[in-house]
Design a binder for these strands. Structure first.
Lengths: 352, 352
DNA sequence: TTTAGCACTCGGCCTATCTGAGTGCTAAAG
DNA sequence: CTTTAGCACTCAGATAGGCCGAGTGCTAAA
């Protein structure tokens, strides 16, 4: 059954008013704020109708109405006007996007922090590798006779390095030999394929040489593991406390615990979609999030990885505002990673 | 004026009881829990004496006593018994110390998280460079004709890398040339010394070549900057909420804001000392910390850097417990970094 | 110097009361 | 059929009063 235009207008007024004030909305304020030429009694009748439709609810008999989850859903789907970012806002976000060149994990962590800053809600961020990563190339650089640097380059153009100290010494030719061995034997292998290869090499290599090889290879495996694993970050959890629904610690505590401990991202929708997704209250899978809303956006990291970034807040969340910022930011991240490389050389001292 | 042994015993009982229960301690419970062969009236007299000495105070007339900051101070200095860690605890900490090889900044961040976990209080961690860092060596590794990897090694044996994409192409000899130039001109210079050198080179280099040079050099500068800057991390701020003194958000909010926003570590003691330092309530410089205690330990990072790690909590903090864990952990970090290199190749999936 | 006893204090808790915002309903008006 | 004015009703939250008991300080005796 379709709502009348007036009902839509009232529903929208209730939602937006409630989002702003966190107080149940009465019929009177609606007649005042909206330019409706009807009396409060009429609005009351309409609100009663909206309530029987399950779009509004009353905390108690003598209070105003608040939107039900279905009410929010309808609002989000049909009534919400896309929020336009101000120039100032977009430049601020663009500025924040000039992340320092860093390990992927840290970029993602920082992205979470930034989103939390811009939205005033707790944020989470993660990256998921869906394809297998392999090492494309090894490089060994001599430092002293007892130390060298390993540099590995993956097929997704991530670079990692490590300084290796040796108990004994090594000379340049030996290092070259090792280098060649690595680049012929351990290249283009996935994590699982490396182990048997290492076993095979072990069988016909001298003890000392093998120790060296396994040292470097296990570093490579560590890198592969890092890039394939889902790493999950949260930021700004304490921002929850600024919202009136969490003024009482009894409400806030379980959610905070959930976010800071259990959060492995299992409750999140898979990042298959391009658009920003809004999950309202009980639509969440996790029980702890049943009266919490989640807004998520996804972005591309190079060719074979994908990231998710989102915020968590009360169902009374400013969906329009959050969605706009989050989408814009996610797009920015895609662009950033789109170059196939980590972000450009840029300076920006942004810490928390 | 020196306290009598009995007074010391009572003071200690009050402190430890209050640390455990967070409730003002009455004379009766002391006679019961301590094996003192005196009546509660005697204890009351002694407590009154301790109060006039400024070591105890009364929240209101009809309540028990709680320790004053001076009381805590005396307890910490003279009465507190060093807490011994259980085998289980030490192995757990040792396990946690097997941090993955990572950028310095992340190791420090993680260290903070771990300490917060072990102490149940919010933790902070930072590193300060006190000597100037310089680049010891550049290495350029060709990837494709339009991309190469820069690897820089600092005099403190930190290694950093970056993949550079070019708009145009480059061949091996050109790269060699660039490599030689870098290693002759931009090596062993501090951050400030690099800029004029770059200017000098700019004056007699072709435009395109200069672009390339400045790309690599600015990356090097970024690395130096990172290593010299104080980077500050906090973790586990929400753990505050688990302590009864912060059940009321009015108390918790300002402190949380302080810790999560302003915290640049300015309120921290300089890490000159070896031992663990305890700052009690009003001894803190920052107003926001006036009824909060801070315990800090410091550790060495290689030869020319130093880190601080510590926890923040109510003055009713379990000093013995916290100090033991923090000191042990800081020692572990020193050992870890003592090798002059980032931590060993080890796997441990510890997130949060 | 210690102890038993006693009057006293005062924060926390529980209950009673009041207030007002907002409702639903009804009957009259458009 | 829709809208409106009016009115009785409901109920959360704030305010005030009263009780309870833990813990104290003081005094007088051991």
């Amino acid at each position: 059954m379709e709502l009348t235009p007036r009902q839509k207008r009232i529903l929208r007024a209730v939602v937006e008013n409630y989002i702003e004030t966190a107080e149940p909305v009465g019929s009177k304020v609606i007649t005042e704020t909206e330019g409706l030429d009807v009396s409060s009694a009429t609005v009351r009748n309409e609100m009663a109708a909206l309530e029987t439709l399950g779009l509004l609810e009353q905390p108690h008999t003598s209070a105003g109405r608040i939107p039900s989850p279905q009410g929010y859903r309808l609002y989000v789907n049909e009534l919400m006007e896309a929020h336009r970012l101000s120039m100032q806002e977009t430049t601020r976000i663009n500025e924040a996007l000039k992340l320092k060149m860093q390990e992927l994990d840290r970029v993602i962590d920082q992205a979470g922090r930034i989103v939390s800053q811009f939205t005033k809600y707790p944020a989470f961020a993660l990256a998921t590798g869906n394809k297998r990563v392999t090492i494309r190339r090894f490089d060994l650089l001599m430092v002293e006779d007892s130390a060298f640097i390993v540099v590995v380059l993956t097929d997704s153009n991530m670079v990692r390095n490590k300084l290796v100290r040796l108990p004994g010494t090594l000379n340049e030719p030996q290092l070259q030999l090792l280098n060649t061995l690595l680049n012929t034997t351990f290249v283009n292998l996935t994590l699982e394929e490396i182990t048997p290869e290492l076993m095979r090499v072990a069988s016909h290599a001298a003890g000392e040489a093998y120790g060296l090889i396994s040292l470097v290879v296990s570093f490579a495996m560590e890198v592969l593991e890092e890039l394939e694993s889902r790493s999950f970050h949260t930021a700004g959890i304490t921002k929850l406390l600024e919202h009136p629904e969490y003024k009482s610690l009894d409400r806030a505590q379980p959610l905070i615990n959930y976010l800071s401990n259990e959060s492995d991202g299992t409750y999140l929708p898979s990042p298959s979609q391009e658009e920003t997704k809004i999950i309202i209250g009980p639509e969440n899978l996790a029980n702890e999030l049943k009266d919490t809303s989640v807004v998520v956006a996804s972005y591309d990291i190079g060719d074979n990885m994908r990231g998710i970034i989102g915020v968590v807040g009360p169902t009374r969340m400013d969906y329009a505002r959050v969605t706009a910022r989050l989408s814009y930011f996610a797009e920015g991240l895609s662009r950033l990673f789109g170059k196939g490389v980590l972000p450009p050389v840029e300076d920006s001292k942004k810490e928390e």
